[in-house]
Amino acid sequence: SYYEILDVPRSASADDIKKAYRRKALQWHPDKNPDNKEFAEKKFKEVAEAYEVLSDKHKREIYDR
């Protein structure tokens, strides 16, 4: 789930989600993982997609249904 990707509970606040996104984006940024760039790019995209949905109140409500 998007919550698992960002490592936050379903009850996470918008601020918690933003902090988790920043932490995970740094962790999986391809430039930070030169030895495993392809895998890092995949993870980085997953993190971005999760944040896009969970950071938008309307999209998150739909996702949580």
Rank of each mutant, 00 (worst) to 15 (best):
D15V: 08
L26Y: 10
N36Q: 11
Y2C: 06
S11T: 15
R23G: 07
E4L: 08
S11D: 15
Y2S: 02
F44A: 07
P34R: 11
L26S: 13
E49Q: 09
A12V: 04
K59D: 04
V53G: 02
I62M: 14
A48I: 15
E38Q: 11
R60D: 02
D7E: 13
Y63M: 03
K42F: 10
K59A: 11
D7W: 04
A20V: 02
K59P: 02
L26G: 10
D31G: 08
A40C: 08
Y63S: 03
S13P: 05
D64M: 02
Y21P: 00
D16F: 06
F39D: 09
R22P: 03
V53D: 01
S1C: 14
R10P: 14
K19M: 12
K59G: 04
S55N: 09
P9F: 04
K57N: 12
P9E: 08
W28Y: 12
K19Q: 14
E41I: 12
L26K: 13
A40V: 05
K32W: 12
Y2M: 05
E46I: 06
A50E: 00
Y2Q: 01
K42V: 10
L6K: 00
P34T: 09
K18L: 14
S1R: 11
D56R: 03
L54F: 01
E46P: 02
P34A: 10
H29F: 07
D16Y: 04
Y3S: 00
I62Y: 08
S1F: 10
Y63D: 03
V8Q: 03
Y51D: 01
A40M: 06
A40G: 04
A48C: 14
F39W: 13
E4H: 09
N33M: 06
S55P: 00
A12S: 06
D15N: 09
Y2G: 01
E49A: 08
L54K: 00
L26E: 15
P30M: 04
E46M: 10
S13E: 05
K19D: 15
Q27I: 10
E61H: 09
E41W: 09
N36G: 06
H29K: 07
S13G: 07
P34G: 09
Y21H: 06
D35A: 13
Y51T: 02
K43W: 06
K42S: 10
D64P: 02
S1T: 14
S55L: 06
A48D: 08
A20Q: 05
K32Q: 15
I5L: 10
F44I: 06
Y3N: 01
D7A: 07
D64N: 04
E61L: 10
E41D: 10
A12Q: 00
Y2L: 12
S13T: 13
K42R: 12
A50N: 01
E46N: 04
N36S: 08
F39T: 08
H29R: 08
S13F: 04
E38D: 10
V47R: 01
L26F: 09
P9D: 12
A40S: 10
I17Y: 01
S13H: 06
D56I: 04
K45P: 01
R65Y: 07
K57Y: 10
K43L: 08
K42N: 09
L26I: 12
A50Y: 00
I17Q: 00
H58T: 15
A20D: 00
L26N: 13
D64I: 01
E52S: 11
A50W: 01
L54M: 03
Q27H: 09
A12K: 02
R10Q: 11
E52Q: 13
R60K: 11
P9C: 12
E52N: 11
V8P: 00
H29W: 08
P9S: 11
K59E: 05
N33C: 07
Y63C: 03
R65C: 11
I62F: 09
S13I: 04
F44D: 03
A20N: 03
D7M: 07
D31E: 12
E38N: 08
K19N: 15
L6W: 00
K24C: 08
P9T: 07
K42E: 13
Q27A: 07
K42A: 13
L6T: 00
P30G: 05
H29N: 11
A48M: 15
A48P: 00
V53Q: 05
Y51H: 04
A48E: 14
D15Y: 05
I17N: 00
A50I: 02
K59M: 10
K59T: 08
V53Y: 05
D64Q: 02
Y63T: 03
I17T: 00
K43P: 01
K24I: 08
W28D: 02
N33T: 05
Y21F: 13
A50F: 00
A48H: 13
E61N: 07
R65E: 11
P34Y: 08
Q27G: 03
A40K: 03
K42L: 13
E4G: 06
E38G: 08
R23L: 14
D16C: 11
A20G: 05
V53A: 05
Y2E: 01
A14K: 08
D64L: 02
Y63R: 02
K57F: 12
Y3R: 00
N36I: 12
K24A: 12
K18F: 14
L6I: 03
A48L: 15
Y21L: 04
D56M: 03
Y51F: 13
P30D: 05
N36P: 03
R60H: 03
K37M: 12
K43C: 09
E52R: 10
R23Q: 15
P30T: 06
K37H: 08
W28G: 02
E38P: 09
A14W: 07
D64R: 01
P34I: 12
Y21V: 04
I62W: 10
F39C: 10
Y2F: 11
L54E: 00
K45A: 14
P9Q: 09
P34K: 12
A50M: 01
E46L: 12
K59S: 08
K19G: 07
L54H: 00
K43T: 06
I17F: 04
S11Q: 12
A14T: 13
Y63H: 04
K43E: 04
E61W: 07
Y51W: 09
E46R: 05
D35V: 10
R65I: 12
N33D: 05
P30Y: 04
A50L: 00
Y51A: 03
K19F: 07
V8Y: 00
R10A: 09
Y3M: 00
D31F: 05
K32P: 02
N33V: 05
K42Y: 09
R23K: 15
L26A: 15
V53K: 03
S55G: 15
V53I: 13
E61Y: 10
D15M: 11
N36M: 11
N33Y: 14
V53W: 08
D35N: 14
R23T: 14
A20E: 02
E61R: 06
A40D: 03
K24G: 06
D56C: 06
R22N: 15
E38T: 10
K57C: 11
N33P: 04
R60Q: 04
K57A: 15
K32N: 15
K57W: 10
Y63L: 04
H29S: 14
D16T: 09
K18M: 14
E52A: 12
R23P: 02
K32C: 14
